[in-house]
Design a protein around this nucleic acid. Structure first.
Length: 609
DNA sequence: CAGGTTAGCACC
DNA sequence: AAACGGTGCTAACCTG
């Protein structure tokens, strides 16, 4: 056993590195009386579900002592770690979803059995201040929190250490943990420090959780478990379809790229500079400028040009095509194929507590940004054998939440009768439904007349009239917005009905309403997810997408399953029915978009790969 | 050349 | 008076 003495916040701490099975006795002696432990794992990377993913060390500790168990060195160490993890003790992790997923995957200790015994310091940090460092918050990483609350010198040391190790081993910082030697003393020191920091952070963070948000602590931990289950479930990929689609997109991209180069000399369609040069050579004046003063070549300019029956129209059409096919292939299809485990499943990475408003984010399967107007990409995902995909989404979730929050009589009544709110706004302003819809959403987003004019293609004064009409149609909303902004001005934050504290920047007081609506909507969806989980739907859940939940349910019970999901998600909020719609998609995520006949016709046009 | 920034674009 | 909220990903470009 190797012991290193160092100091944290002026206090001396010991880090013990277990080296041989005989050393475990001392570890168990130390741990015997401890019922709460800081804990952490070091792994070969972040790709938990890949074949060669391994745990390297498991660490436990308290405020002054850290232990490193080198589980990759032998089964005795793994056994010891598992014994502790299943012992009934409580643990403090930073970002527990990751470690508990690792423990589930590598040690076969189900995360359902560990989550209930865990405090996650990242959850506490987000409840205290949801802002990242770049937004003026303290941030949520172990490093940032250590710097702000424990000991800046320790935070710096760790940062410098990773850089040094990467340099020493001639690798990237993200690769360090997969290649560093298990006996590297710096690595082990770093590893042993983490449970100490997690333990100390909990003591610092718990008192800082706002009183209104204390009830959210347990809720967010339960939600993290549900999301971890969805990550573990993964989503089955139709590899035959996906490979064909990838090849097809590549051919289309190449064709457009070749013509762009031959005819217009554009090598990289994604290079704004190159495209701007080529356009100006054809006599097109590129007037728009980006914030940094460069020529702006965006979708709007290209779309407008693509209408022209002229060389610049051809150029624009080719650039649009080349960009789209490349994006679709690299960002989506090839990403899915590369991310699959050996069972053809892609495991999304879900952060249930991400944005300032606590909105979730999903990576791995960037489910929140898949093209929605086209079924082609979603078609890559299929239900498990014998199952059927079901999608349930909230009907106008944010507007219903706005109606509930504001209590506006007209809006509430509209939703009571399932009336068409966009049409009501449109009628009040004497404009098309499309403009009414835009005005409704702009209200939720905090937009003004300039944006409405731009988006709806109407004049500025007309846009102002529409917004005035909105205000007089829904006086309760205007009053609610004023109160929220006043609260934000006075306190620097607003508080949601769930008790979540949302800081509002002084320069963006107008965002208060949006924060409240967005955050409350998030909690409506998440509370629904918890009900679904408690109803036993865990294994069927695939993805949460803001106001939508995707599930794969037994095909012969799809109707019933869809109805159960729909009812579990639906809720009454202050007398407003936050209602849901269920759709049985069938044999792929793309299946709801287009009739089978059309799909088959399209799929047969694929070139064999 | 790794890592950060900018621009553009996909979504709710 | 007016103020568009929140994400993630890629390619190109910039920097130390």
């Amino acid at each position: 056993m190797k012991t290193t003495m160092t100091s944290v916040a002026g206090e001396s701490v010991d880090i013990h590195v277990v080296e041989r099975p005989e050393d475990l006795g001392a570890f168990f002696d130390w741990i015997e009386q401890k019922s709460v432990l800081g804990a952490d794992t070091e792994t070969t990377g972040l790709d938990i579900f890949s074949d060669d993913f391994r745990v390297r060390t498991v660490q436990f500790g308290n405020a002054t002592t850290g232990w490193v168990l080198p589980v990759e060195k032998g089964w005795e160490f793994t056994k010891a770690a598992c014994e502790v993890l299943t012992s009934g003790r409580h643990f403090i992790f930073h970002n527990a979803m990751y470690d508990l997923q690792v423990i589930d995957r590598c040690f076969s200790i189900p995360l359902e059995e560990t989550f209930g015994k865990v405090v996650d310091t990242r959850i506490l940090a987000h409840l205290i201040d949801p802002r990242g460092q770049e937004e003026g918050g303290i941030g949520h990483s172990l490093e940032a929190l250590t710097r702000a609350l424990i000991d800046p010198a320790v935070a710096d040391e760790v940062k410098v250490l990773v850089k040094l190790l990467a340099k020493e081993m001639k690798t990237t910082q993200s690769q360090v943990w997969s290649v560093v030697d298990i006996d590297n003393p710096d690595y082990l020191l770093y590893a042993g420090m983490d449970p100490i920091l997690a333990y100390r952070l909990r003591e610092k963070l718990e008192p800082l959780v706002p009183a209104s948000a204390r009830g959210l602590v347990a809720y967010e931990h339960r939600l993290a478990e549900v999301c971890a289950v969805m990550e573990r479930n993964g989503f089955l990929v139709d590899t035959t379809y996906s490979r064909k689609l990838s090849n097809r997109l590549r051919r289309e991209e190449d064709a457009a790229g070749d013509r762009l180069f031959e005819t217009f000399g554009v090598e990289s369609p994604n290079s704004t500079e190159q495209v701007a040069d080529a356009l100006e050579e054809l006599g097109v004046k590129v007037r728009g400028r980006t914030p940094t003063g460069r020529r702006k070549v965006d979708k709007k300019l290209l779309d407008d040009l693509s209408e022209l029956d002229a060389p610049e129209g051809e150029l624009a059409r080719l650039v649009i095509e080349a960009k789209r096919t490349r994006k679709w292939r690299t960002t989506w299809v090839d990403g899915f194929l590369a991310g699959m485990d050996t069972n053809n499943r892609v495991h999304p990475s879900i952060n249930p507590l991400r944005a300032r408003t606590a909105r979730m984010s999903i990576t791995g399967i960037p489910a929140q940004t898949l093209p929605s107007s086209d079924w082609m990409i979603r078609r890559c995902f299929i239900p498990d054998p014998g199952e059927s995909l079901v999608s349930v989404d909230y009907k106008a979730q944010e507007l219903r939440v706005l109606a509930a929050l504001s209590g506006d009589t007209v809006m509430r009544r509209a939703f009571q009768h399932d009336a068409d709110l966009h049409q009501i706004t449109a009628d009040a302003a004497g404009v098309d439904r499309k403009v009414g819809k835009m005005a409704n959403f702009l209200q939720v987003y905090g937009g003004g007349p300039a944006k409405l004019a731009e988006g709806a293609g109407i004049s500025f004064p007309d846009a102002k009239r529409v917004i005035d009409a909105f205000r007089s149609t829904y006086p309760g909303v205007a009053q609610f917005a004023r109160a929220a902004e006043e609260e934000a001005r006075q306190l620097g934050y607003v508080t949601t009905p769930t008790g979540r504290v949302l800081p509002v920047d002084e320069s963006r007081i107008y965002a208060s309403t949006n924060y409240l609506v967005q955050s409350t909507s998030r909690d409506v969806t998440c509370a629904g997810l918890l009900r679904l989980y408690d109803d036993g739907f865990g294994p069927y859940l695939r993805l949460p997408i803001h106001d939508e939940v995707l599930a794969s349910v037994p095909a012969d019970q799809a109707e019933r399953g869809a109805k159960m999901i729909r009812e579990a998600l639906r809720m009454d909020f202050r007398g407003v029915d936050i209602d849901t719609d269920a759709e049985i998609l069938g044999d792929s995520w793309g299946a709801g978009y287009v009739p089978d006949s059309e799909r088959e016709a399209y799929e047969t046009t694929f070139i064999p790969f």
